[in-house]
Design a protein around this nucleic acid. Structure first.
Lengths: 279, 279
DNA sequence: CAGTGGTCTAGACCACATT
DNA sequence: ATGTGGTCTAGACCACTGT
């Protein structure tokens, strides 16, 4: 019961009806069902809690890899029961935004984590094993969004972009060409040199340097014939079949932050995809 | 507290320690923590409940599209609290094995459901819209498993298989060649004619006629050049790039039930894939 | 109306990790 | 020893669906 409490709210605390409050639009204890933002009365309480947590995440109240307040603290902060906080956190864990560590606490996920990395890197050897690829920056330029890029990134055509191309090598052999476009507005200080120096993955870099967390990607796959440049880069004959992966990466609130075309040589590797269970 | 109760168990009911039982290996109320199968004492109770529910599903106690007993009934059947049943069911809903309908009950999922179908059919138009394809049976034969098929299906090389090939058309245009192999042992009565007559999807057909529910698939994607036969079937020039999808489909208990190679013409279509949220 | 799942509470005990 | 998340309970009230 910490936190602000409106007079309106404390008056409304008819109380003494035992446990249970239901999902009714009845104002509850305090905290959430009060002033704050657009409280959306019809919504379940735990969804409201989740919304608040998401907002705190987006605001950067807790940064990646940082410890979130304990469930008990969150419960009192929002004026709800622990079980309700738990349900909100459950969903955010399922969404891979938070991770729990028994006995230690709940943390904001970070792309520095290897498991997190492989979650978005789906290229594997024919036997299914994945390894971290080597990266070489081939190209870096500022440009303007074409029709496709603008549509996928939710920008106006002609909006300023930063475009760069990476070559990924696995076991020393070139395997993937990544053509990446990001809105210049979101990545103001992104330079060729900072990309080269980046020690970890690109998404970790986005997170550390620009406070942008990629939480979801949408991909469309197709097969294309390698053009001359791609063939040269990947050491293939022109016209060889390549796997084209068009990806839009989203941050919190479904905000698109990156559009990427990956051209994959699938002679030695495959793209893996599971449906039905853990992603 | 319905159901069997071992003398051992009822004796162990020290009781009267209020709510809470923890995840300890202490024997609990009755039902589950008793004789039954390999009870795995260290496991959480709700996992044990889930195991039992899965077993009932596998045994066919509740068939696809059928109503499962209410949560209250399940709770008394297994001698646990409703909250515990709820957590088990929650996971099975997340695994897409059950669906809840508020006010009606909980049902076993069925492949007749359209949503369920599209869950495993990931080919879409360039705009992202999906539609049900037309199917034409090109080939039907009995054969023996080669090395790859045997490995993927968990069979011995040379095990008897049923192999058939479908051509899928979208908007009247040939789009996909499906080469499907299933163990003859699992599909004894599968004939060319029954495949032709099948009114719904293949997985619905497996479910209805053979009691086999596909609950999960693993796919490996690559790009290949069309051979002469594929080019002819799909109306393409030989050597055109095709998207090859190698799929293993699993039923309950991770049992592989189908191995399939799909050759997709991605001129008009794409394979869609999401990571980070709902599958 | 009765029955179902959906939400919420308050509190207990546990396993685990850190101090 | 303390604090964390993980599990479990028992019961309340709600919204929805069928009769």
């Amino acid at each position: 019961m910490i936190h602000s409490m409106t007079a309106l709210e404390s008056a409304a605390m008819d109380k003494a009806k035992g446990p249970g409050r239901g999902a009714a639009p009845t104002p509850g204890a305090d905290g959430l069902r009060g002033q704050d933002a657009g409280l959306a009365l019809g919504t379940p309480l735990y969804q409201e809690v989740k919304r608040q947590l998401l907002e705190s995440l987006r605001r950067g109240e807790w940064k990646p890899a940082e410890l979130v307040p304990s469930e008990k603290q969150l419960a009192s902060r929002y004026g709800v029961s622990i079980g309700t906080v738990r349900k909100a956190v459950d969903e955010m864990v399922a969404d891979k935004l938070l991770v729990r560590h028994q006995g230690r606490g709940t943390y904001v996920v970070s792309h520095s984590n290897q498991r997190q990395f492989f979650y978005f890197f789906r290229i594997a050897g024919a036997d299914g094993t994945r390894q971290v690829p080597g990266v070489e920056l081939l190209r870096f330029a500022r440009g303007k969004a074409d029709g496709t890029q603008a549509a996928r990134l939710g920008l106006a055509p002609g909006a300023p972009l930063i475009c760069f191309t990476n070559k990924l090598s696995i076991a020393g052999r070139p395997a993937v060409i990544d053509e990446i476009a990001v809105p210049q507005a979101l990545f103001p200080e992104l330079t060729r040199q900072s990309l080269r120096d980046r020690p970890h993955t690109i998404y970790h870099f986005y997170q550390e340097r620009f406070g942008i967390s990629v939480v979801r990607v949408e991909e469309q796959l197709s097969a294309v014939a390698a053009d001359a440049a791609q063939a040269l880069s990947l050491g293939l004959a022109p016209g060889s079949p390549l796997l084209l992966v068009r990806r839009v990466a989203y941050s919190f609130r479904e905000q698109p932050v990156e559009y990427r075309c990956s051209y994959v040589n699938t002679q030695q590797h495959v793209y893996v995809c599971e449906s039905g269970r853990a992603g």
